[in-house]
């Protein structure tokens, strides 16, 4: 039976070694539907490795990642066959890359980029695909007149918003985000964050967002996980961890943020 009391994603004892070097070690958590989890830490803390493991991009050395499929069954994502895994990734999951070029087809029009997932799951009506694509461009605040332009002609912020639309068009329940605002101008960041915040709340998305920016974590996430040297050193309610950090490293992170 599906109830909100069952997690959408469970990670248990996730460890990833690169030879003798530790990527991340013994990470466990539950993620529930509609919950936004921020993973924060500096470069090399293991947060990106963890995201790769969670999103089937990097098989863990030890540990399991289970996901509650749309039929309610919990499945170990590394025991799905490849067809199931790929279907999951382009329907029920999304992945927003820091570099939009990794998540978009730069030579394909904006409409084609958004429509690709629909066509991948069998949509064969041009008019409907286009109408859905236009609807999504509107929701991510891209001028509808740009629907036939390729993202290589877009600004960084527009590309990122297009990448988000491309991911959300199949109404996924879980979206992974890797520094989605990294590399953008501050004013562009603010707009994107605001858009993301609205979409996440409206669609009830579960999100695992990796960021080194505590302001991003505060604005978007319910819960936070602080990583250092491959380990989770502190976890809890976002405002609690940021306003009352317990671990020395977390206190250092929080105190290092410029106040404006």
């Amino acid at each position: 039976m599906i109830t909100d009391d069952q997690p959408l994603l469970t990670a248990r004892g996730i460890t990833k070694m690169y030879g003798r070097h530790v990527g991340c070690t013994d990470v466990s958590f539950d993620l529930f539907a509609g919950e936004v989890l921020a993973v924060v830490g500096e470069s090399g803390s293991g947060k990106s490795t963890l995201l790769s493991v969670l999103s089937t991009r990097l098989e863990p050395t030890a540990g399991t990642v289970c996901y509650r499929m749309r039929d309610g069954e919990m499945r170990d994502i590394y025991r799905l066959n490849e067809a199931e895994r790929r279907l999951l990734m382009r329907t029920d999951w999304g992945f927003v890359h820091q570099d939009a070029r990794e998540g978009l087809r730069m030579g394909i029009s904006a409409g084609g980029n958004v429509g690709e997932r629909l066509m991948a799951i069998g949509s064969r009506h041009y008019g409907e695909i286009r109408a859905t694509a236009l609807d999504w461009l509107g929701r991510v605040e891209i001028d509808l007149a740009r629907v036939d332009d390729a993202p290589k002609t877009f600004s960084g912020g527009m590309r990122q918003r297009l990448q988000i639309a491309r991911n959300l068009v199949t109404q996924p329940r879980l979206v992974y985000m890797d520094e989605p605002t990294g590399g953008l101008d501050v004013s562009v960041q603010a707009r994107l964050l605001d858009l993301l915040r609205g979409l996440v709340a409206d669609l009830g998305l579960a999100v695992v967002i990796v960021t080194h920016d505590l302001a991003v974590a505060r604005l978007l996430s319910h819960r936070i996980m602080v990583m250092r040297a491959g380990r989770v050193i502190e976890t809890g309610l976002t405002d609690q961890v940021l306003d009352d950090p317990r671990e020395p490293y977390t206190q250092l992170l929080v105190s290092s943020v410029l106040q404006v």
Binding site: G236, L237, D239, Q240, D243, D244, R246
Partner: peptide
């Protein structure tokens, strides 16, 4: 107040 709200541990 912050403890009651869960903002402080």
């Amino acid at each position: 107040l912050k403890m009651i709200y869960g903002n402080y541990r």
